[in-house]
């Protein structure tokens, strides 16, 4: 049974692993976008506050990107607002 902090790290690593085939930098960017788009603010703050020792390299890079962005807007390939409308 994971603690909530361990779960956040696990989730970030899992996202990074599934995006890793895009190449390290693109995967880190996509991981950061994904977390920005789908995690609630407290979860983001928690993972950014973590020492990142348990994070895989791509996930760690993603979290660094998130910290650099400060208060990120959710902008990612997964949530492209304009092109993703369901207006048919």
């Amino acid at each position: 049974m994971m603690t909530p902090d361990e779960r956040l790290v696990y989730m970030a690593n899992q996202i990074a692993r599934n995006l890793a085939a895009r190449g390290d930098e693109a995967a880190a960017l996509a991981t950061a976008d994904h977390i920005a788009a789908f995690w609630d603010p407290h979860m983001r703050e928690r993972i950014m506050a973590d020492d990142r020792a348990a994070l895989d390299p791509i996930a760690a890079r993603a979290i660094a990107l998130l910290r650099r962005r400060g208060d990120p807007g959710a902008q990612s390939a997964a949530t492209v607002f304009a092109g993703g409308a369901d207006a048919g």
Partner: peptide, 16 residues
């Protein structure tokens, strides 16, 4: 879903 309004529009989309 916690990230979307009706019609699958993200809550961070200022226009929506």
């Amino acid at each position: 879903f916690p990230h979307e309004y009706s019609g699958y529009r993200h809550v961070a989309d200022a226009e929506t």
